[in-house]
Design a protein around this nucleic acid. Structure first.
Lengths: 190, 190
DNA sequence: ACCTGAACACCGTTCAAGT
DNA sequence: ACCTGAACACCGTTCAAGT
């Protein structure tokens, strides 16, 4: 199963892109419960075609998470490279990650459960994200602006927590910024 | 639909209790995805009987959440009444809530999505929990041991966050205590 | 190669028949 | 009143037939 459009016939590639666009739109709008049938219809193809490209619903979700994962890596790298102040780099990293996640219910679920999803090259992508996170965390620890025991692995854990209130508690969703603020205060040195 | 066993025939009451026991066991063991058919079989009744007592799968989950909700109220009240130190009362409240939640995947999902669940008397139960939470929060704020802007509504938000990593990140599940520690530090005054 | 949609499997839910 | 399980509906997935 190819993970990108390379070496697909022109019509097949076009269909693949239409499917991803339709899935993105419908997941964002109505969450991961949208029927595959409907995604296929919205993309203007038969269900069989959908399943030819993405063997399960999970695989379709995975393909979308993968694309967003790139965005997360970019955010982490930019925070590591382009933001001089160590604390601002960390807070910006977390805030921008969450802003990316906001408003896409399908993606929120995917981020929270992302440990379960697998694709070709995940391990390398995870390592890249983790490396960028580590640079930001190490810099903040060295500058003494966060607790000394903070690790890069704390970031996905905490992001999952904030994302979950976004997803599960409709009434609290707009308050993810307050949740983040409390967590950020918890990262400050004692 | 009666919410307890009152005024049920003896055999019906026994069946109802068997269903709840089976559901509790299976949800805890295998999460909310267990088929209704299987719960019925495990309880030694037909599916029809299950549906006679609980009109939907959600209603069954709701009945179980309701029972646990009582436990949460008890935890909050005990923290408010029996723990003299204001900070210890708050930390114990949060920690004991999470210990209750640990290990029951079905219940974890229910807690996180609990805003969506409804039952007869929810509003009063929510009010009772909120009142007990408020007593603990107000005492901590008055003593100056937590940030001055902490509200009772922050507690479910933060608990949902910690619970979500328990649920979603199998590798991180044992780390909920670290997640809680960071959140608790975030509650300290600046 | 790729596309289609009818058909199959699984699970939540209903209901006619039985005690 | 309550119980049962076959039947129905819905949705994820497959596959025979078509281009």
């Amino acid at each position: 199963m190819p993970t990108d459009s390379t070496s697909l016939r022109a019509d097949a590639r076009r269909n693949r892109e239409r499917i991803l666009a339709a899935a993105g739109e419908l997941f964002a709008l109505r969450g991961p419960a949208v029927p595959m049938e409907e995604i296929a219809a919205h993309a203007g193809v038969g269900v069989g075609t959908l399943y030819r490209r993405f063997p399960t619903k999970d695989a379709l979700l995975t393909a979308m998470v993968r694309a967003r994962f790139e965005a997360f890596i970019a955010i982490a790298r930019e925070a590591a490279d382009a933001i001089a102040d160590p604390l601002e780099a960390l807070t910006t990293l977390l805030r921008r990650h969450l802003e990316q996640t906001e408003g896409d219910t399908g993606f929120q679920l995917a981020v929270m459960g992302s440990n379960a999803l697998q694709w070709e090259g995940v391990d390398q992508q995870r390592a890249e994200l983790s490396a960028a996170n580590r640079r930001v965390v190490d810099r903040a620890v060295a500058a003494g602006v966060v607790r000394a025991d903070l690790t890069p692995d704390d970031l996905p854990m905490l992001l999952c927590g904030v994302t979950s209130t976004m997803y599960f508690q409709p009434g609290f969703a707009p308050d993810w910024r307050r949740h983040l603020e409390i967590v950020l205060d918890g990262l400050r040195p004692r």
